[in-house]
Nucleic acid binder design. Structure first.
Length: 298
DNA sequence: GAGTCGTGGTG
DNA sequence: TCACCAAGACT
């Protein structure tokens, strides 16, 4: 696969050293770094998918205390995972994490897999999460591309404000070419941290950036994003909002709830029924007898 | 490849 | 205020 991208202008070694050195001073003391067992890393990565660190922290702590191993989680009904997920959002992630724990117990002796293939076969583990687990849990060498790293590379190396909506081949080639032979996992964590703390989406702190001197976007005068506007996520009146309301009722209940309790949280009956059916199809809700509903297995 | 899937903080 | 954004995965 040939790339249409010009070769990187920055010197990879300088880039690595600057970012990793900065990371040594500025890295946050996060619980999944302090106790980076494979299961802890895996749980954190599921929770951090599209969810800010600050909101993950309390749920993460409670989760690992209750379920210190994959087997502990797999031993309980999926609904308990959904309930403990709380208001993190995208509750299917809780379902997938539970299913992944079950698969780990049944197929991997209770140990989080180490190979990309085995990791990707787990529900909820995509390209990013597999690479993250390999890097942060096993100290392996993998191309990690999350929203932070993609933005940092787009700016520093490519010279544009934002990466494309979806990962491109050129981007993957660039990230691969920059993957250091040694301490690749530190490079991944450091680049991600730089994107999270300094090279942020809204208001980048170039004044304190360790690679400002070699940043192509900065050198070009911070040109604004050129391309189609990134589609905002609508919310009011959507199925997602409706689903959220229904799930909140079931989470906050101690057992099965009557359908009437669900009806009152969404006025549009047709949309409500459609959303409820979808939740059942997704496995997030279990219909029981006498027109009652519950989280699966509870 | 574009759509869908939650929730809440913030510039 | 409100559109944007947050360690994506899946169809």
């Amino acid at each position: 696969m040939t790339s249409s991208m010009p070769p990187p202008i920055v010197d990879p070694t300088r880039l690595h050293d600057a970012v990793i050195d900065w990371f040594g001073r500025a890295a946050r003391d996060l619980p999944w770094r302090r106790d980076a067992t494979p299961w802890a890393v895996m749980v954190s990565e599921f929770m951090l998918q599209q969810t800010p660190v600050a909101r993950v922290l309390p749920v993460y702590e409670a989760w690992l205390e209750r379920w210190p191993t994959p087997a502990d989680l797999a031993a309980e009904p999926a609904g308990e995972a959904v309930r403990a997920w709380g208001r993190l959002g995208y509750p299917r992630r809780a379902l997938r994490l539970h299913a992944a724990a079950t698969a780990i117990v049944e197929g991997h002796g209770g140990q989080v897999p180490t190979s990309p293939e085995d990791l990707r076969a787990l529900p909820g583990v995509g390209e990013y999460t597999a690479a993250a687990i390999i890097s942060f849990a096993h100290g392996g060498r993998a191309v990690v591309m999350d929203t932070n790293i993609r933005r940092v590379l787009a700016r520093v190396v490519t010279g544009v404000e934002f990466p494309a909506a979806a990962v491109t081949a050129a981007e993957r080639e660039l990230a691969t070419s920059l993957l250091p032979a040694e301490r690749a996992h530190v490079w991944a964590a450091a680049t991600m941290e730089l994107g999270a703390l300094v090279c942020t989406a809204r208001s980048p702190q170039c004044q304190v950036c360790p690679v400002a001197q070699m940043c192509r976007w900065r050198a070009a005068g911070h040109p604004a994003h050129d391309g189609p506007p990134r589609r905002g996520q609508s919310w009011e009146g959507t199925d997602r909002q409706c689903r959220g309301r229904l799930m909140a009722v079931l989470r906050d209940a101690t057992g099965p709830v009557a359908k009437a309790a669900l009806d009152v949280v969404w006025p549009d009956a047709a949309q409500r029924e459609r959303a409820l059916d979808a939740l059942v199809a997704d496995g997030l809700v279990e219909p029981l007898e006498d027109e009652t509903y519950a989280l699966p297995g509870t």
